[in-house]
Amino acid sequence: MEVKKRTAIRSMEYGDFKNNDYLEKMVDELNRDGAGVILTTIDEVINWGRSNSLWTLNFGTSCCAIEFMALGAARYDMARFGFEVTRNSPRQADLIMVMGTITYKMAPVLKRLYDQMAEPKYVVAVGGCTITGGPFIKSYHVVNGIDKIIPVDVFIPGCPPRPEAFYYGMMQLQRKIKVEKFLGGVNRQEKEPKEEK
């Protein structure tokens, strides 16, 4: 079966996204061994559901979290996309949105929350501090980028990013989910943890 390389996002042109080559490369990699007709169809349905129902766990540590609140408020209303269901329990969330500086004291907590989430799970890093450490990069107590601790799916730069940037990032995550193969275990790329003694 022909593998669909393009993912459609409502009211956004495909060409308007900036990282199409990355996504197409990812599709190629995922489908290296070919794609079955039935599995792909089921995959598409499941991925449609998953990509349109992203429940966030807000890990807001500083400024960016306030912009996220503005995202939830009436003007930018994230309920339109179905993102408004924010779960405070990591067990019920699909993605963890890390907003703000992650310090050395916080890093183990972030890792622990990430581990507590149910599969399939995604990480969105929001804001300069989260991505690289931002203006605090020289500090003795700031993690220089959360990708050193947990795998990040989408980076949303800005200090803080505007609500529109949040949407762009969330759409990128939707696109990424849409090309994934849910059946076939590609999601579980991390190694199984070793048995505890």
Binding site: T61, S62, T103, K105, F136, K138, H141, V142
Partner: peptide, 14 residues
């Protein structure tokens, strides 16, 4: 406290 202690005062010294 301290989960978002970024050491602003120490950074400012440089």
């Amino acid at each position: 406290c301290g989960y978002i202690h970024r050491g602003v005062e120490k950074i400012s010294e440089s």
